[in-house]
Amino acid sequence: MVDINVVEAKGTARPKRVIDRLGLAMRASHVLVALFVVAALIFAAVGVIQDDRFFLRLGTEALIFAGLALSVDILLGYTGLLSLGQALYFGLGAYVSAVVLKEVPSFWAAMAAALVVALVIGFLAGLIANRVRGVYFALVTFGLAQVAARAVYNTRSLGASDGLIGVPVVPIDLGVITVMSNSPAGFFLFTLGFIVVLYAVCAYLLDTPFGRVLLALRANERRVPSLGYSTRNLRLSAYVLAAVIASLSGALYPMLRGFVSPELLFFTTSGNAVITVVIGGVGTLAGALYGGVILTVLKSVIGSLTEHHLIVIGLLFMATVIFLPKGIMGVVRPLIERMLRGGKR
């Protein structure tokens, strides 16, 4: 996976950038995200015409969980770290946002608080988790999330096992327009924009030399120090970036649903995010968005049809792993790449 370009890209001012294999893959992801946005806009338009509430809000929830999946993909797909505790940051963002909104109903204050807390906690937890590798990293992240979940579960001022209700509907002042968080179409479109921005930030960072070295880490961690990079700082940066993405996504949850509960920090949330990434396609970023929508819709539809929905989802997950090891994006993206390459020549 390590490309010669990784080394060359460092230090040079990147004059005319050669589109290598990885750059092409990233462009293909951009095309897929553009298609995703178009589909989402059509969905929103139909929703508005039909005066729908439920499906638009379900779609919004899917996008929020896609944000969480995005953060898992940064770790799993780009850095080669399996985090089984990403719900820690999702729940952290959700609780911070809920607590702030109950005090001051300001969208930007809630987001700023979620960002700062994620930076601090992500950095501290990252120091602990990044001391170990492989399966131990998975276990430590899992353990950290369990500790946080238990702590919240037993803290009366955070609502303990009942969670916090009564998070008000907030106006989101975007300068030109103000979106209310209880407007189904408005908040859906806002969340879509927000998640696309998160995607763009991740895609940009991962396409810089920083991202290339992360890929090198995934491919062969022992060789990276010999190229002159500190693996600890790199891994820590990736971990904190993922923490921030998860926390900011989580911060939107109480705005949509009006409450938070300790279940948001539980393993089911982390596990679903990993399943989302695997179904969508590991290391594609766009796969997290598609996977998020697919899993949320599947759970909602199958859950209403049968109480054995967990079995059905489990079987679908296994089938994906066996027949589509690179996820849905593994099938679709090469086609787009071929088109892009064809267009260039």
């Binding site: 059509i42 139909v46 929703g47 039909q50 005066d51 439920f54 499906f55 929508v293 539809v301």
Partner: peptide, 13 residues
């Protein structure tokens, strides 16, 4: 999948 949702949405509506 978005399309499926659309169909579902319009059906229900």
């Amino acid at each position: 999948m978005i399309r499926t949702t659309l169909i579902l949405a319009s059906l229900c509506a």
